[in-house]
Amino acid sequence: MGPITNRYTDLVDIEHPIVQEGLGPFRTSKLAAAVSEAGGLGTVSMPGFPQDLAAGARTFREHIEECASMTGRHFAVNIPIGVDANGDVLPFTDAYLDAVLDARRADEGLARQLNVLTTSAGFPGRYVRRVRDEGLIHQHKVGSTRQAVKAQEAGVDVVIAAGYEMGGHAPAKAVHTFVLTPSVTEAVDVPVLLTGGARDGRTLAAALCLGAEGVAMGTRFVASAENSDWHPAYRQAILDAAEGDDVAFDGVYGPCRGLRNAASAKLSEAHGDPVELTRWKIESMRRAQTEGDVDGGLVLAGQVAGAITDLVSVRELVPGMAEEAAQVLRKLSPR
């Protein structure tokens, strides 16, 4: 069996069906470039929710341009569609989308590289036509089969089936990947990626057996040598995590999963102004990532953290995963 190619790798034009998840609210440009250089699809994450959205948009564009300068291959960006209590889309979504489109319009070379936009959280319907008209492939993350069907009907190109075990913002429906993924792949015709629990070639092979055409990973890529923008203490917290050390808590716009620590315990007892609490959560996440405060800051991570014990090289991990998956599938093939 040769390299694993399918509709997804053909659509996005990458070597291996392995995607780095969005990992905000901090810089991931170096990591994204490393994943793309290794033959997967790296993702530049949005830089949080600053009070000055114009400044945040400029930072996002700087990260995008930095990634483009470090790889000649394709990469993606991730923009959640946040909504308020009334269901109205929060202003940061449009501000960050404008930053992405402005960066592509200003540089034809960058536009060829930045060919994928991933949305999550809220329904993407109002953005589908705009994303398509700009020549971008639109991926949307869902936590239920119903959401997958709605996203396909709206016109997205790829669905990411997000299991509840994933790190960061997890789906409210709390359905795990082994149940969700085959249901989604049966319900939609577009390519499907699995996210939540993937970490090696065996889990990539399992995703393919469930009907997905690739995996998206966050926690595994956090614990990598190329994730040099994040504090080493954060990566070490992932390596030190034991099975069951993760916990789900109320995040910025839905359930969130991270490591159990003083910050997650404090959050479970928190009360007061919702806006101020949201700002504390975002600042706490940033502090863990940039300053290494892995006890007083929220350490976003999936359940798979308990199975990750080594710091890997992205350059070796991505093609190695694909080769291992091919070997597993070859062993399962009838002679």
Rank of each mutant, 00 (worst) to 15 (best):
G214P: 08
T278G: 12
G143E: 10
A305K: 00
A162S: 08
A68G: 09
G320M: 09
T71I: 03
G122I: 14
L317T: 04
V159W: 05
S36G: 05
D13P: 06
A121K: 13
P319W: 12
H169M: 02
L114Y: 08
K141C: 13
Q20Y: 08
G258Q: 07
D245M: 01
T195R: 04
D84Q: 02
S120C: 02
E134K: 00
F178N: 03
I18M: 09
V35G: 00
R132M: 06
V35C: 02
V77Y: 00
E108Y: 11
R126W: 01
G125L: 04
A216P: 03
C209A: 12
A38Q: 10
V312P: 05
R335Y: 07
H169Y: 02
V142S: 07
I64E: 10
L53G: 00
V156W: 05
D189I: 09
R61F: 08
P50C: 06
P182R: 01
V179R: 08
L53S: 00
R105K: 15
V179D: 06
M70N: 14
D295P: 04
G72C: 09
I282R: 01
E62D: 15
D250W: 10
A307V: 11
A170M: 05
V252D: 09
A95G: 00
A237Q: 13
R279H: 10
M70C: 07
G167H: 15
A55M: 01
V188A: 01
R260C: 12
G56A: 06
H176W: 12
S224W: 11
Y234G: 05
